[in-house]
Design a binder for these strands. Structure first.
Lengths: 132, 132
DNA sequence: CGGTATCCAAAATGATACTG
DNA sequence: CAGTATCATTTTGGATACCG
């Protein structure tokens, strides 16, 4: 089971690229729950700008993960939702949510760049996280 | 199950931040399988540079997802592995893998950023993804 | 309301050189 | 082997203007 893993990782690379945008995980996590309008996404994602939201959505759309629906009304309404392909990400999002509920709360607010303990013993295999 | 979802999303934001680096998903996907040395990660992740690999690993370490172990040998050896907390990401990685195996292969190589056509029809609710 | 276009600042990433 | 330092390039953030 060694070599085949590398091949699989090779295949997975495109999946990582599709989800690696700075806001894509958050957008997909929201859309996996329900349909969102453009403005709703903006409000739901505090730090994001129109520019970036628009750009990330266009990329997700180009990758076939999100569909864009325009309603010719006044005022204009545009809805975003996951495509059939992306709906399969449901279990992934669910697993991620479960993980964070279990372990996330035990992770400190952000160690930031804190000093770490001393390190390594002698030549032994003793494990150490040594400092920078 | 409406209002609580928004609170949850708020909690999740830190999790997204931890995994949103350009190479973090790929790194975590690899480490969820086994322990890797620095050089092994480099070879396993074709496009990455030393600089980025080092930086992303430091961030993952700061977030408590990865542990770094230095062996005082010659030549130097450093191993990276998931922490106990991050091991809970296993189901997430597995679900992601399953998803890509099922749907990924049906997604075209990349539509790239092509111009989009005009949109929406008349005032009806008719959904239109308008062609690219 | 839901965008796109611009311009500029800041941050993230990439390339190359050098070190313990 | 496993990095760090430095500098170039690319992405992203922010503000504003403008459009259907």
């Amino acid at each position: 089971m060694a070599e085949s893993d590398f091949t699989m990782q090779d295949e997975m690379r495109r999946a990582f690229a599709m989800l690696s945008g700075k806001w894509k995980l958050e957008i997909m996590w929201l859309l996996h729950q329900r349909v969102y309008r453009f403005g709703e996404l903006r409000k739901a994602i505090p730090g994001i700008t129109q520019h970036m939201l628009s750009a990330q959505l266009r990329e997700l759309e180009a990758d076939g993960l999100v569909s864009r629906t325009v309603f010719a009304e006044v005022p204009p309404r545009v809805e975003y939702e996951m495509t059939q392909k992306a709906l399969g990400l449901g279990p992934t999002m669910a697993a991620l949510t479960v993980w964070w509920e279990e372990y996330g709360k035990t992770i400190p607010p952000r160690p930031s760049t804190r000093g770490r303990k001393a390190e390594a013993q002698s030549g032994q295999k003793g494990r150490s996280s040594e400092a920078r």
